[in-house]
Simulated scan of single mutants.
Amino acid sequence: MNNAINITINAIQHIGIPVTDVTASQLFYSRLGFNKVMEAPFTDNGGTGTCVMMQRGNMIMELYQLPGAGLSEIRARGNGHIDHVAFDVSDIDEAFNVISEAGFNVIEPEPVFLQFWKNGCKYFNITGPDGERLEFNQVL
Rank of each mutant, 00 (worst) to 15 (best):
I99F: 08
H14F: 11
G131H: 08
A76W: 07
E110K: 14
P18K: 06
V85K: 00
I107R: 14
Y64L: 13
L71T: 14
F34K: 01
M61F: 12
V22Y: 00
A95Q: 07
E94H: 13
E101A: 15
A86L: 06
C121I: 12
G128M: 12
G103E: 03
D21Y: 10
I107T: 13
P111C: 07
V19T: 03
G57R: 08
A95W: 08
Q55K: 15
A76N: 14
R75F: 08
L71V: 14
G47N: 08
E110V: 09
H81Q: 12
G47P: 05
Q55V: 01
P18G: 09
V89H: 05
V19W: 00
E108D: 10
C51Q: 10
L71F: 12
R75H: 13
I92C: 06
L27Y: 15
E101Q: 15
R56L: 05
D91G: 07
T50G: 02
M53S: 02
I92F: 13
E39W: 03
M38E: 13
C121S: 12
F113K: 09
F28W: 06
E39A: 08
R77Y: 11
S72K: 12
P129R: 10
E108V: 13
V19K: 00
L63K: 05
D93Y: 12
F28P: 00
W117H: 09
V19P: 00
I60V: 15
N35F: 01
A40L: 01
S25H: 03
Y123N: 01
L66H: 02
Y29R: 04
E101K: 15
T23Q: 10
F116K: 03
S25A: 13
V85I: 15
T50A: 04
V37K: 11
N125E: 04
V37S: 11
N10K: 15
T127Y: 00
M61D: 00
H81S: 11
A76E: 12
E101F: 13
E62L: 04
Q65C: 07
A24E: 13
N45L: 06
L63Q: 04
G33H: 08
G70R: 12
L66C: 06
N45S: 09
G103H: 06
P18N: 10
R75Y: 10
S72F: 09
P67Y: 08
T43S: 15
G78M: 07
S30A: 12
Y123C: 00
L63C: 09
D44C: 13
L71A: 14
I74G: 00
Q115D: 12
L32F: 15
E132T: 08
T127F: 01
K118Y: 08
N10T: 15
F87N: 01
A86T: 03
H81C: 06
S72L: 08
G49W: 02
L32D: 11
Q65L: 05
K122D: 01
A76P: 07
T43Y: 09
I15Q: 09
Y29G: 01
N119L: 09
F42G: 00
N10Q: 15
I15P: 03
I12K: 06
Y64C: 03
S30G: 07
A86D: 04
K122W: 14
H84Q: 10
T48E: 11
T48S: 07
P41Y: 00
L27W: 12
F96K: 08
T50F: 03
V89S: 02
I74C: 03
I92M: 14
G16F: 00
